[in-house]
Amino acid sequence: MASIMGALRRRVLTPDMAETRLSTRGFYEKNPAARDLLETVGMSFLTGYGFAAEAAGPTDAESGLEQVPYEFRGFAYEGAAMACAVRDGLPFGHAHRVERFLTGQAARHVYMVYVGVGWAMARVPRFRWSSMYTADPLLRWLVLDGYGFHQAYFRTAKYVHEQYQEPNFPWPGKGWSWYADRVIDQGIGRATWFVAGTDAARVADIFEEFPESRRADLYAGAGLAATYAGGAGEQELAEFLQRADKHRRWVAQGSAFAASARVEAGLVTPHTELATRVLCDGMTPEEASIVCAESLPDPCVDGAVPAYEVWRTRIAERFAQAGD
């Protein structure tokens, strides 16, 4: 009975794979290789989502997730985290699935898990947001990155081309809406890498249409996507860094975040190595990951400026110094 219920739950909850096609989304197709890459990312995400939607318990999805090719496995864990969070957010969904998911192999993908929770936040009613797993005082901000990515990916005209920002964003609470908007912009920047089909020049063109005050966060998100997802060659990445101009340090910060996520998960790929070499001042992914670790605030407590922003700024400053 449990397997029948699981299969039914997977069928009901999991979005159609067609939603990952660039043609469905109306995204730019740079070339067939970039299209195949981005569509495989999307399919891997939904594959992971399906495993977790069907699983009786969160860690029961691990056997399937671990079979996803290592280049795309992090996206599958992200999708699985979204499914766990959606199930937590449903009526009577108080099983703490995301928390339990993180007791297993997902702990190596903790950044992707928090981003996946943000995807779920965009899909469940706001009165259920209190059920979302946001226990880590530092990484909880990543849910807004995931929320921003989701909105830009599925509501591209409004969030990317019309540059929409939601006034007085309600999470995580009063007094933080100014920073919530910034992290959402990081997710929008990350999604723009997909919207533009990994065409770095097109990404920069889109960013230049945004107000100057938003571009640093957008570039940080794109730097993360360029490193974690890939899709651009060395010359294209170098030109993108040049286009970023005074926001180069934020491209490097996003790239370092992506490198850290892949290093911690044991999923470093050749494109990760290429991207960090170009975007992080010649560093290897492991060296960029060390910069992230050494820049962690201690303690990780939000003050006038959130600890997450303190962390990001320290990383960006390290790369600004390296480029001087």
Score class of each variant (00 low, 15 high):
residue 1 M to H: 11
residue 2 A to L: 14
residue 2 A to W: 06
residue 5 M to V: 11
residue 16 D to T: 10
residue 16 D to G: 05
residue 22 L to E: 11
residue 24 T to L: 02
residue 24 T to G: 10
residue 24 T to Q: 08
residue 30 K to C: 07
residue 31 N to S: 12
residue 31 N to H: 15
residue 34 A to W: 05
residue 36 D to H: 09
residue 38 L to I: 09
residue 39 E to W: 07
residue 40 T to R: 15
residue 57 G to S: 14
residue 59 T to K: 14
residue 67 Q to R: 13
residue 71 E to G: 02
residue 74 G to M: 10
residue 74 G to I: 04
residue 92 F to Q: 07
residue 99 E to L: 10
residue 100 R to S: 15
residue 102 L to R: 09
residue 103 T to H: 15
residue 112 M to S: 09
residue 116 G to N: 08
residue 118 G to N: 09
residue 123 R to I: 02
residue 123 R to D: 12
residue 128 R to G: 00
residue 151 Q to W: 08
residue 158 K to D: 12
residue 158 K to G: 00
residue 160 V to N: 04
residue 160 V to F: 04
residue 163 Q to W: 02
residue 164 Y to F: 14
residue 165 Q to N: 12
residue 166 E to R: 14
residue 167 P to A: 14
residue 169 F to A: 09
residue 169 F to N: 05
residue 177 S to T: 15
residue 182 R to K: 14
residue 185 D to C: 12
residue 189 G to I: 01
residue 195 V to C: 07
residue 195 V to F: 05
residue 212 E to M: 07
residue 215 R to C: 01
residue 218 L to V: 04
residue 218 L to S: 03
residue 224 L to M: 14
residue 231 G to T: 03
residue 236 E to A: 11
residue 236 E to N: 15
residue 236 E to R: 10
residue 238 A to R: 15
residue 242 Q to N: 14
residue 244 A to S: 11
residue 248 R to S: 10
residue 250 W to D: 09
residue 251 V to Q: 12
residue 253 Q to N: 05
residue 256 A to M: 06
residue 261 A to R: 07
residue 267 L to N: 15
residue 269 T to F: 05
residue 270 P to V: 06
residue 280 C to T: 09
residue 284 T to D: 04
residue 286 E to N: 05
residue 300 C to G: 01
residue 301 V to M: 04
residue 308 Y to S: 01
residue 312 R to P: 00
residue 312 R to E: 01
residue 317 E to G: 01
